[in-house]
Design a protein around this nucleic acid. Structure first.
Lengths: 193, 193, 193, 193
DNA sequence: CATGAATGAGGCTTCATTCAT
DNA sequence: TATGAATGAAGCCTCATTCAT
C-alpha cells in the first residue's frame, strides 16, 4: 500500500471518528466525512467500499487499541497493582479519545446493526483483560474466590466508562488522577476481600 | 383534549417505543410508526409536531418513569436496605424495558442532539436518587465520609446499566435475583466502610 | 343569513386578504386564515366551501369595490374633471387597501388559474370606467379622436397601479396628493390634444 | 466547472423557465422540472441547492436580460429617439418572453418572499434605464424640468408592462408596431413639454 | 489512486379537505 | 352554525452509491 493511500485512509479515519462521535452514525453523511478529510466523496468508496465498512473498520481499530493499551498496562504493572493500572489505562484512553468513546457507547449496545458482532467480540477483548487480572488475583487470594469475575469485569468496565464520560461532560477541569483515585477506591472495595 | 385524541397519542407512543427500541431512532421511519399505531402518517404530525418531538417526549417519559421507580424503591425500603432496593429497581426496570434501556444508552451520551438537554436532565434525576441514598448513609456513618458521592452514584448507575444489558444480551436465562445479588455484593464493597 | 354568520364571514375575509397579500395565495394555508380570523378550520369550509372559492369571492368583492368607487367618482365629478377624479379614486383605493392591491397584481395576470376568468372580467369593469370617461371626452373633443381609448385606459390603469405600489413600497411618507398631482400631470399629457 | 455540469445547469434552467412561466412558481414541482430537463430529481439539488435558489437565479437572469436590452436600445438610439427605442425594447422583450413577464409581474410586488430583494434590485435597474433617458432629455430641455423623473419612469415601465400583457392576452393578433405606436404617442404626451 | 457529477430510493413534512360531534 | 381530529396525496429534500474520466 502506497504512502499516499495510507495517508488518505488515516485522514478519513480521523474525520469519521470525530464526526460520528459528535453526531452519531446515522446523522453523519459521507459528504461530511470526505469534506473534513479533505478528499473527494468517491475516495471514501475507493478506500473503504462504503459507509458501513468504514464504520466497522473504525470500531474494530478503536476497540483493539483500547484492549491493547489495557493489556500492556496489566503486563507492565508491578505485582499487586495490575487492576489499578488497567483502570488507569481505560480512563486515560477515554480521556484522550473522548470522541471515540462516545461513539462506542452509542453503538455498542444496539442490536440489529451490521457491526454488532464486531463490536461485541472486541468489546469482550477489553473486558477479558480485566477478567484475567481478577482471575489472577483470585488465585493469589487477594479477591474472594466466590466472586463472579465475569460479571465483575463487565461491571468495572461499565463503571469506568460511565464515570469517565460524566467526567469529560460535567467536570472536564478535574485532573485525571483525581478521578482515577476515586475509581480505584471504588474498585478496591468492589472486589477485595 | 378529547378522549379520541388521547387514545391516538397513546397508540403512537407505544408504536414508537417498540419500533425505536428495535431499530434505533434513525432507522425508524414515521411511516412505520404510523402503520404500527394504525393511523395515517399525518396524524403523527398533528399530534406531536414531528419525529424529533415525538422522540423527545418518549425519552422524557421513559427516564422519568425510571427515576420514579428508583425513588419509590428508596422510600419504601426498610432502614439500611435503601441502596439494595434502588439497585434492584434499576435492574428490574432495565429487565422489563430492555428496548428502552438500549435506546437510552445509545442516545444519552450523544452531544449535538436535539434531545441532549432532556436526556441529561432526567438522567441526573435518576442518578441523584442514588446520590441521596449515599448521602443519607454517609450521615449515618455507614459509608466513608470521604467518599465522593457524586462520582460514586454515577459509577453505580453505570455499573448497573452495563451489567444489566450484558445480562440480557449474553445470559438472559440467569434469574434476575442472581445478577442482583452480585451487584449488591459489588456495590457494598464499593461504598461501605 | 344570521348576524353571527355574517360576522364570521367578514372576519375570514379580512384575515384572508391580509395573509394572501403578505405571502401570496399558494403560501397561505387555511390554518393560518382560520387562526387569524379566530375560528376553527372547519368553519372556512362551512362558509366558503374551500380555499379557492374563498379566494375567488375575495377577488370579486375587492375588484367590484374598486370599480364602484371609480364609477362613483366619475359620476360625481364636476364637468371636465372626471379623469382626475377617477385616477384619484383608484390611487386612494390602493392606498387604503394596499394588501389587496398587491394580491391583485400578483394573481391578475396568471393564466391557468381557477379564478382567471373572474379576475379578468371584473378587472375590465374597472378599466372600462376609465374608458367611458375617455370616450365622453373624445366626443367633447378634449382628447384626440384618433386615440385608441381601449389601450389608453388599460395604460392609465396600469400606470396608476404601478406608481401607487411603488409609492407605498419606496416612499410611503409622501402625501397622496403629491403622487396624485404627478399622475394627473402625466395623464393629461398622455391623452389631451 | 465541467462542460457536462454546465450543460445540465442550462437544461434545468430552460425547463424551469418554461414550466414556472406556464404554471407559476408554487404550482411547479421539482419533479416536473427534472423530468422536462431529462435528469434525475437529485440533480436539481446537486446543481442549485433547492427550488427557491433555482427560482432566484432564474429571476435574476431574466430581469438582467430585460435591463440589458433596454440599456442597449437606449445607447444605440439616434439622438432624440431614446425613449421610443427603450419602450420598444421593453415591449419586444415582453412579447418574446411573455411567460417570463407574467412570472415577473406575479412575484415582483410580493413582499415576504425569499427573492424579494433580488427582484426589487434588478427591477430598479430596468426602471433606472428609463429614468436616465428622461434625465438626459430634461437637461436638453425636451421634457419639463419640473417633471419627477423617478415617478415618471416607474409610471412608464408599469404602463408598458400592463399594456403589453393585455395585448398578448386580449388581442394577440395585433402587430407589435401598432401597440408600440400607441405607447409612444401616450408616452410623448406624458413627458414632453 | 482519486475525482465529482449524477442518480433515485426513501424520508420528513405540509396542507386542503372530510366528517363525526 | 361551528368545531377540530384525522386523513393521505403530494411535495421538498437528503444521501449512500455508481461510474466515466
Amino acid at each position: 500500500m502506497s504512502a499516499r493511500r495510507e495517508d488518505t485512509r488515516r485522514r478519513l479515519f480521523h474525520a469519521a471518528v470525530s464526526l460520528i462521535a459528535e453526531q452519531g452514525f446515522g446523522a453523519t453523511s459521507v459528504d461530511q466525512i470526505a469534506e473534513r478529510a479533505g478528499v473527494a466523496k468517491g475516495t471514501v468508496y475507493y478506500n473503504f467500499g462504503g459507509k458501513t465498512e468504514l464504520f466497522t473498520a473504525l470500531l474494530a481499530w478503536g476497540i483493539s487499541r483500547l484492549a491493547e493499551e489495557m493489556r500492556a498496562a496489566a503486563e507492565a504493572a508491578p505485582s499487586g497493582t495490575a487492576l489499578t493500572e488497567v483502570l488507569r489505562a481505560e480512563l486515560a484512553f477515554i480521556g484522550e479519545h473522548e470522541a471515540f468513546a462516545r461513539l462506542l457507547v452509542s453503538e455498542a449496545w444496539q442490536t440489529n446493526q451490521a457491526w454488532y458482532a464486531t463490536v461485541q467480540q472486541i468489546r469482550n477483548e477489553a473486558i477479558s483483560v480485566i477478567g484475567a487480572v481478577l482471575d489472577t488475583a483470585a488465585r493469589r487470594g487477594s479477591v474472594p474466590a466466590t466472586l463472579d469475575t465475569g460479571v465483575a469485569s463487565s461491571a468495572l468496565f461499565g463503571m469506568v466508562l460511565t464515570v469517565a464520560l460524566d467526567w469529560r461532560t460535567l467536570q472536564p477541569e478535574r485532573p485525571m488522577e483525581e478521578i482515577h483515585a476515586i475509581l480505584v477506591q471504588l474498585a478496591q472495595g468492589m472486589v477485595s476481600r
